[in-house]
């Protein structure tokens, strides 16, 4: 990752100077696009938790992962990966609850 991190403009540039710069609208959109592409790849390969199945994710979606990490701050990458799992679990829970409240359906 270290090799490629310079290729994209990071949203939260902590980097060299140590000066923080807030992510702008365009860099946010870039990051979100890269994230969506990466998650689509995970979907295709049936990987839900990219943090848990790190090796598989890196092997199957390496290119997308680089783009994702290149366009988003590391804290964002981690956050989005966690959120993906949380959203999935929430969805399952809601489905389960719906099934329980309407058992006939």
């Amino acid at each position: 990752m270290g090799l490629f991190s310079s290729s994209g403009s990071k949203t939260a540039s902590s980097s060299d100077t140590g000066l923080y710069e807030a992510p702008g609208r365009t860099s946010r959109v870039k990051c979100w696009d890269a994230r969506d592409t990466y998650f689509q790849c995970l979907d295709r390969n049936n990987i839900l938790d990219a943090l848990k199945h790190e090796e598989d994710a890196a092997r199957l979606c390496g290119k997308e992962s680089q783009a994702f990490e290149g366009n988003c701050a590391l804290s964002w990458v981690k956050y989005f990966k966690q959120r993906r799992v949380a959203e999935y679990e929430k969805e399952q829970l809601l489905k389960k609850q719906a099934a329980e409240s309407f058992p006939s359906r």
Binding site: A12, Y20, A22, R25, C72, S75, Y79, F80
Partner: peptide
């Protein structure tokens, strides 16, 4: 906060 990934924007 400005470094908010998705919800705040």
């Amino acid at each position: 906060f400005t470094n908010c990934p998705d919800i705040c924007p």
